[in-house]
Amino acid sequence: MNRPEPHPIHATPARALGVWVFLIAATLVTWLVGERGAHGPAIVALMFGLAFVKGSLIILEFMALRRAPLMWRLLTLGWLSSVCAAIAIAYWKGMS
């Protein structure tokens, strides 16, 4: 009955914990890629796909932009998408 209403901007503690667990697990994958010396376009796509998801979670959940005005989500997620896309293009350019 006395349960507080969820905050309109900030994630609940349980949600934040879930995000943190995912972020650590994804970091472990990236570390493993490095340890095994794995390389190639598929590996790089996986790694930066994960980096994009991790970055989006930081922006939407930790920075609490999930319910902020749309413009701020577009600006920050747009930055993340552009940087990841440019890295992918540069990697592809380096292969040719």
């Binding site: 490095g34 390389h39 790694m47 980096a51 970055g55 930081i58 993340l80 940087v83 890295i87």
Partner: peptide, 15 residues
Amino acid sequence: DLVWLILFPLVYVMR
């Protein structure tokens, strides 16, 4: 934190 999440795979791991 966000910047490091790109920097780490890019500089330390990507090959």
